[in-house]
Amino acid sequence: MTQTISKSGLSDLRSKDEIRAERRKGRTGIYLVAPGLLVLALFFALPVVVLLAMSLYVKPPGAEIGEFVPGFEIGNYMTVLSAYWPELLRSFWFALIATVLALLIGFPMAYLVAVRLREKPLLQGILLVLLIAPFFSSFILRTQAWKQILADEGFIAQALKFVAILPADGHLTATPFAVVAGLTYNFLPFMVLPIYANLGRLDTRLLEAAGDLYASPMNSFFRITLPMSAPGIFAGTLLTFIPAAGDYVNSALLGNNRNTTMIGQVIDSRFFKVIDYPGAAALSFVLMVSILVLVTIYIRRFGTKELM
C-alpha cells in the first residue's frame, strides 16, 4: 500500500500544498495592510507619543520664549485645565447643539433623497451632488461666506430685525449663534451622508406592512424608519460631533473672543501665539481623552452590536 497516515493523524487532513497555500494567503494579507499600518504608525502613533511627552516638558529657569526641556510636569495639566475649563465645556456644548441641529436638518434631507426620490434617479443624483458640492470649495472660504450671510446689512439680519426678533442694534456675527450656525453648516454633510447611505437600503415594503397593520404614516416613521436608520444616525452624529468639538475655524472667524472661544482656538493660540508648547500639548491631550470618554459612553449607551 502506498497510502500512509501521517504522524499528526486525522487532526490535519490538509496536504502540505494546501497548508502552504493558506500561509501564502495569510502573508499576502499582511503585505496589503502594511503600508496603511506604517502610515498610521508614522503620522498618528508617533506624533501622539511626542505630544504626550511634550505635554510634560518644563520651562527651565531663565529660558527664552519657546525653550523647554524634557521633564515630567503633571502640573501642566492642572494649569491649563484650571485656566481653560470653560472653553472646553463650551466646545462640547456648541458641538452638541450643532450635532442636534445637523440631525434635525439633515435627516429630512437624507430621507428625501434616499427614500422619496427612489423612483426618480436623475433628481436623486442632482441633489446628492448638491449635497457633496460644498466639499469642492475651501472650508475656510465657506466659513468666511457665513460672515457675509450673517452680516448686519445682510438679508438674514435685516429680516430678523424687521420682524423684531433681533433688536435694531443687534448683531448676528460675533455671537455664539453665528459659531453654532457655522458648525452646523460645515458638518452637515457628515451627518447626511451616513444617514443617506443607511436609508438607501431601507426596505419600503416594511412601511407598507406597517400601514397594513394600522400604523399611520407618522407611526410607521417612528416605529420602523427611525429605529431602522439608527446605525446611520449613530455614525452621522459621531462624524459631526467629534470634528465640531475640536474645531477652531468657526469660532475664530464667526466668534467674538469673549463668549464664543472654543478649545481648538485656545490650543491654536497656545501653540503659535503664546508659544506654550507643553500647555498646548496638554490641552490637546485633554481634548482627545474627553472626546474618547464621551464617545465611549455614547457607544456603550446607544451602539449595540448590530449598529456597529
Partner: peptide, 14 residues
C-alpha cells in the same frame, strides 16, 4: 391602508 379592516400576509413576509 391603516384604516382598512384588512390585513395582508406579504410574499416577502415583510
Amino acid at each position: 391602508s391603516h384604516k382598512r379592516p384588512v390585513n395582508t400576509v406579504f410574499q416577502s413576509y415583510a
